[in-house]
Design a protein around this nucleic acid. Structure first.
Length: 250
DNA sequence: ACATTAAGCGATA
DNA sequence: TATCGCTTAATGT
């Protein structure tokens, strides 16, 4: 969270017109991120000078499904939850995006509207650029290939999730969802690995086509067996191995 | 093998 | 105090 501090200070902390051009953001913020790692300092400077930075609170919608894709985004800190709403008003969580990744890149998918809704799953710091700059970015060496790598990973993840949803039963689905969360966003703590952002039973049920009651019951049972430890909005996996066993059909 | 309904409890703001 | 997250039991499919 040191990054949070730095950017807040650079932003001047004040006035809630948060959407403002960066004064001087350090180039090292981008140099180690895959889409930008092959660019020289002048190119990074150019990119940063056109970026807008904004700090988001938890649970804030960055953009909504179907909206005009006016901008694309780079998540510098925090987590993004990508979700869709069914016609009956039910929410389905498609995936979570960790910091260091681009998102809302409709242009790369040949779309002019966002295919899903993006909500902050934690406090977040996000850079964004007008979509018209996408082609300019795409001309940079390695930008496109790296971008498609992460897009490919996301599609791969969603693929395996579809198979899970279609073939496995709830216990396996929830176990798999939890394993993915700790693998992607896990943070080592005293007695295991903790999901790095606030997550409710309702959230987990929306990731697994289940209900918060079933999730609650399963987490309680797993806690009794010493596999997980959970309190409100926090889940620690203390025995990942046994969770892997549960994620396997038996 | 699950979802739904309902009731109640503690934490949080 | 009101709302939220969570648990549990009973009941339904």
């Amino acid at each position: 969270m040191a990054l949070l501090l730095i950017v807040c200070l650079l932003d001047g902390m004040r006035d809630e017109a948060q959407q403002k051009p960066m004064a001087r953001l350090d180039e090292s913020l981008l140099t180690h991120l895959p889409p930008f790692s092959r660019l020289d300092n002048r190119q990074i400077r150019d990119i940063l000078d056109q970026a807008t930075s904004k700090r988001y609170n938890e649970g804030v919608t960055v953009f909504g499904e179907g909206e005009e894709a006016e901008r694309f985004f780079m998540l510098l800190d925090g987590y993004i939850r990508v979700m869709r709403i069914t016609d009956t008003g039910e929410q389905v969580i498609a995936l979570h995006i960790p910091s260091g990744q681009l998102f809302g890149i409709a242009r790369a998918l040949g779309r002019d509207t966002y295919p899903a809704t993006a909500v902050t799953a934690s406090e977040a710091i996000i850079l964004s650029w007008p979509t018209r700059l996408w082609d300019h970015f795409a001309s940079y060496d390695g930008f496109t290939t790296e971008t498609y790598k992460t897009v490919g990973k996301r599609i791969g993840e969603m693929n395996t999730r579809i198979v899970e949803l279609a073939t496995q039963q709830v216990e396996q689905r929830i176990a798999n969802a939890l394993l993915r969360l700790v693998n992607q966003t896990g943070r080592k703590v005293e007695d295991g690995i903790e999901v790095d952002f606030p997550i409710t039973r309702q959230d987990l049920s929306e990731m697994t086509a289940s209900t918060l009651h079933t999730v609650s019951r399963l987490l309680s049972a797993w806690e009794k067996d010493g596999i997980v430890k959970s309190r409100r909005k926090r889940i620690v996996v203390s025995d990942p191995h046994r969770l892997v066993l549960l994620s396997q059909p038996h």
